[in-house]
């Protein structure tokens, strides 16, 4: 967490500074979708949602501080003759994404990100780890100042020598509340 916070703060400072310097848009948005654990037999598909703060810092580059939380599905298994359920856990994260975002009403963009992820599961030790995001997005602006985004991303949370990976598919909307010349 201590390693990620400076990154997020730096992104915010750079974003705000650049926004005032080159005439860009600052917005806020929300998103939601599904989070699908990859190669994790102890969690099932769940719901993810969160908030984003997209800041254009260069003509093709957006920095996007975010907060997200995912509630993963419980695992149900039968051992012998008895059925059991294990809590699928929750993941909450905050960090920053960098988007290579083209202009225009319809945009197709790659993005990467880094964030602090907290994994919580009943009767298990809470874990706070660094995670990375890689993905592709499709954005379109049907109404001025409003953007709609569809994204697919791989979220990988490092656990020492292994990781927990998720495929997240989300839809979101954002509103550009600040435009500087």
């Amino acid at each position: 967490m201590k390693r990620i916070l400076p990154v997020v703060l730096l992104a915010l400072v750079l974003g705000a500074g650049a926004a005032s310097a080159i005439g860009v848009k600052v917005g806020g948005g929300a998103f939601g979708g599904v989070s699908i654990p990859i190669l994790q037999e102890d969690s099932k598909q769940g719901v993810i949602y969160g908030l984003r703060l997209p800041v254009s810092v260069l003509p093709l580059l957006k920095l996007e501080p975010y907060w997200a939380t995912a509630s993963l599905g419980d695992v149900e298994e039968t051992f012998g003759t008895l059925a059991y359920t294990r809590d699928g856990g929750k993941v909450s994260a905050y960090g920053v994404n960098a988007l290579l975002s083209m202009g225009g009403p319809l945009r197709f963009y790659p993005f990467v990100g880094i964030g602090t992820h907290k994994l919580v599961r009943e009767a298990a030790e809470d874990l706070t780890k660094v995670g990375y995001n890689f993905g592709l997005g499709l954005g379109f602006s049907a109404i001025p100042k409003f953007d709609v985004d569809l994204r697919g991303e791989l979220n990988m949370i490092t656990l020492g020598e292994t990781s927990r990976k998720f495929a997240n598919v989300t839809a979101g909307v954002s509103y550009h509340f600040l435009s500087l010349p």
Partner: peptide
């Protein structure tokens, strides 16, 4: 190697 990893019961 953290890429090629998983959790197995």
């Amino acid at each position: 190697c953290i890429l090629v990893s998983g959790q197995f019961i």
